[in-house]
Amino acid sequence: MKERKGLIIGSVILIIIFIGMLIKGEPSKNIMVWIAAILTLSIYSFLYRDNIFYKFAEHLFVGVSVGYSVSVVYQNAFIRRVFDPLFITRTYIVEGQFHILPFLAVVIPTLIGLLMVSVFTKRQAWLIRIPIAFVVGSYAGMSISPSFQANIFEQTRSTLHIALSISSFIMIFGVITTLVYFFFSKEHKGFLGRTANVGIWFIMIAFGASFGYTVMARISLLIGRMNFLLYDWLGVIK
C-alpha cells in the first residue's frame, strides 16, 4: 500500500516536471525523435520494475537489431561477394573468355560456407567441421606471426624500455609477478607463492582501474541519453 502511494506521488511529480519542460522548452517536431524518446523512457522504466513497456521496447529492440544485422550481412556479404560476381559483374568472364579460377574462387568458398547449414540436420551435422576447420585454420595461420609480434615482441620490448626510474621498476616488477601468478606448473608455496600474491595485487589494481573506467562509460551512456532527451527531444537546454 505504502509503495503504491509512493508510486502515484512519484508519477505525478514526473508528469508535472514533464509538462513543465514541454511548455518551457522547444519540443522536437520530428516524430522519430518522439518514438526514440518514448522507447528510451520505456527501457528506463525497468529501473523501477519489470513492466509491459520495458518488455515491448526490449522485444522491439531484439527484433530490429536481428533484422538489421541480417539485411546488412546479406547485402554486403551475399550480394556484394557472391551474387554480384556470379551473375551481375561476372568477374570470371574476361574479354568474352570464361576463366575457371576466378569462377571457382567464388563458388568453392560459397559451397564450403553453405556447409554451416548442416548443423540443422541430425545426421549431417558433422559437415560443419569443414567450414569451421577452414576458419580456425586460416585465422590461426594468419594471426600467429602478427600476434607474436604485436603481443609478445612489442610488449616485451616496451617492458624492456626502461629508464632508471621508479615507474619502470614497478612495471617490470608487475609484469614478472603477474606472469608468476599464471604459472601453473608448481604449487604456489614459499617464494613462488609470495611472488604470485604480489602478482594478484597488481592484477586487482589493474582491474580496479578498468572498473573505474567502466563506471565512467556507463555514466557516459546515461549522459548520452539525457542529452538526447533534454536537447533533441524536449529542447530545454542549449
Binding site: T156, I162, F183
Partner: peptide, 16 residues
C-alpha cells in the same frame, strides 16, 4: 613464460 621472465630479468639487469 619462464623464457619471457628470464628475458625481462636479463634485460632489466643489462639496462641498469
Amino acid at each position: 613464460k619462464v623464457a619471457i621472465i628470464s628475458v625481462i630479468l636479463v634485460g632489466a639487469i643489462l639496462g641498469i
